[in-house]
């Protein structure tokens, strides 16, 4: 049974090897150069910042490099000149994690609800889209003013959390709609037919099938929150989140510790993305391993 399959893969590989680079149309080179330019424009400035963050004590904000050390990273943590960076970082992390959890849970439930028509579903949908297209700064100011009028202190874990959710929830739900299209009603009915309770159906059937999509929603929620600026500016209250901290540093800090902060926050972003993609790959590997066991 496996023989004809491997034979077929064999011929495809041969064909791939035989194919010469001169077979490529001129459009390949045009598009490849365009892509190369794009990558340089995207990462070039950032890479300069990362390199400059590793300078020694007497380093400045421009090339050339003056010595190599981790001095500015230390400076960042010791908050002698830079302000409360580690505090801002942990606030941003707590906030991003809360936003992620709420976004995933609510998007999942909304996705389930929107599979059927219900009274007022179109209104709910358009309200959701409205909060997505409303200018973030205006929305943030509105929420800040609202809290003031009600006499409630704005803070990063109340008003800013709400303001960020007005952004991540519609996004999460839209992604969920696409994910939900994979869900076949027969699966739920089959689970019920086989005696599963509603909770068992969700835990044993629906969630595992939707897992890759839910990870995507989580990734969305986290990254949108982690670098959210416009909506958070007027709602974060007395304590800054990381993007606000970086912004205020650009106004009054003129040392490479600003660049060190850039390097650290980029590393964190990459770790988050790596963990998310890694878990999706792990899910796929698990099924692939099962296939290998079967053979």
């Amino acid at each position: 049974m496996t023989a004809p399959i491997s034979a077929r893969t064999g011929t495809t590989m041969m064909r791939r090897k035989v194919r010469k680079s001169s077979d490529r149309p001129w459009t390949f080179y045009v598009l490849a150069s365009f892509f190369a330019l794009y990558v340089i424009a995207l990462y070039g400035p950032m890479i300069s910042i990362y390199i400059l963050s590793f300078q020694d004590v007497q380093g400045g904000l421009v090339f050339p490099m003056r010595g190599v050390s981790l001095y500015w990273f230390n400076e960042l943590i010791m908050q002698t000149r830079a302000g409360d960076v580690s505090g801002a970082f942990s606030r941003s992390m707590y906030l991003a994690v809360s936003v992620t959890v709420i976004t995933v849970v609510v998007s999942f439930m909304a996705g389930m609800a929107f599979r059927r028509r219900f009274r007022g579903d179109t209104i709910v949908f358009y309200l959701m889209i409205a909060s997505l297209v409303a200018p973030g700064l205006v929305l943030g100011i509105g929420i800040g003013l609202g809290f003031n009028m009600l006499g409630i202190e704005t803070s990063w874990y109340t008003s800013a959390l709400g303001a960020q959710l007005s952004w991540t929830l519609p996004f999460g739900i839209l992604v969920m709609f696409a994910v939900m299209s994979r869900l076949n009603n027969d699966w739920e009915e089959a689970a019920r037919d086989l005696g599963a309770s509603r909770a068992q159906t969700i835990i044993l059937v629906i969630l595992p099938i939707l897992a890759p999509g839910l990870i995507a929603v989580a990734l969305f929620g986290f990254t949108l929150s982690y670098d959210e600026f416009a909506r958070t500016l007027q709602t974060a209250g007395p304590l800054n989140t990381l993007p606000l901290e970086i912004w205020s540093m650009t106004l009054n800090v003129t040392s490479p510790s600003l660049y060190a902060l850039g390097t650290v926050s980029t590393v964190v972003s990459f770790i988050i993305i790596g963990v998310s993609l890694g878990s999706i790959v792990m899910l796929q590997r698990r099924s692939a391993a099962r296939l290998n066991n079967a053979k």
Binding site: D186, A190, A191, D193, L194, G195, Q200, L204
Partner: peptide
């Protein structure tokens, strides 16, 4: 004590053949 076989078969795509067959016993 009826059981239904669906037109699409509705096999759970994330479960192996064994786990699909065992599903009803597992939820019990």
């Amino acid at each position: 004590r009826t059981a239904m076989m669906f037109q699409s078969y509705a096999l759970f795509p994330h479960l192996s053949v064994r786990d699909n067959i065992a599903f009803a016993l597992r939820v019990r």
